[in-house]
Design a protein around this nucleic acid. Structure first.
Lengths: 111, 111
DNA sequence: ATGTTATATAAGGCAATCATTATATACTTG
DNA sequence: CAAGTATATAATGATTGCCTTATATAACAT
């Protein structure tokens, strides 16, 4: 086991220490979402969501796919930090109220 | 497995996203240190170290023991977030240069 | 081509974080 | 008790982070 550098770990924790980004990452490990869905689910502004996603992208945490006028994001399972990320979100209570609400909202959204 | 709340996880990540506090936590899981040792090892000011330790303490991450004029700190293995913390520091490369330097400095310090 | 929708980027403001300087507390030693 | 050492706390200032507003880009529809 080689392990990660201090810098890589702190970079990852800086990204996931935000509640929106922590829950968002949990969802992105389960399936892909397009930006407009995420904006609706989290009730944040479109630029705010876009900036959250940019942080993930800069750290290599997500895959991005453009289809039509939409961009879909999901967790990049091949990233260097994938075990760390999986362990962190694995600590989340699966019955977390916010998570349940987010998932139910997702179903109601059509971009 | 119950899991932790979003707030508890983000609180913990906020504490460990700082490189000094990440490495420091790694050391505190191995053995106890007094504040003056830590100040010498990390080459930070005494108040800065004291404030780092206060953050740990506020989050319940450390045990504190006063012996003589020294205060010794170590990881609180009974804390709610102990698995999360152990997983995060478990990702650290054990041969991390900074870690090796810190440990060798520790031996040279006598308060 | 024009308008509309989806998304990104840039610029600005406010709040949180981190280190520093200064001061306080508490124990120890003479 | 006075001086010294270890530690904590408070106040200030600089930096960073996150959101907002405004604007740009790109795909699609008419």
């Amino acid at each position: 086991m080689l392990g990660l550098s201090t810098e890589k770990i702190t970079e990852t924790l800086k990204i996931l220490h935000d509640p929106t980004r922590l829950l968002l990452m949990k969802l992105l490990t389960e399936k892909e979402y397009c930006v407009c869905e995420l904006v609706g689910m989290f009730e944040v502004s479109q630029p705010a969501m876009s900036q959250h996603l940019r942080k993930y992208k800069k750290a290599g945490l997500v895959c991005e796919e453009k289809r039509g006028q939409w961009r879909y994001y999901c967790f990049n399972e091949a990233c260097e930090q994938h075990i760390l990320v999986e362990q962190i979100i694995g600590q989340l209570d699966d019955n977390d109220e916010q998570l349940i609400k987010l998932r139910s909202k997702a179903e109601a959204i059509t971009c």
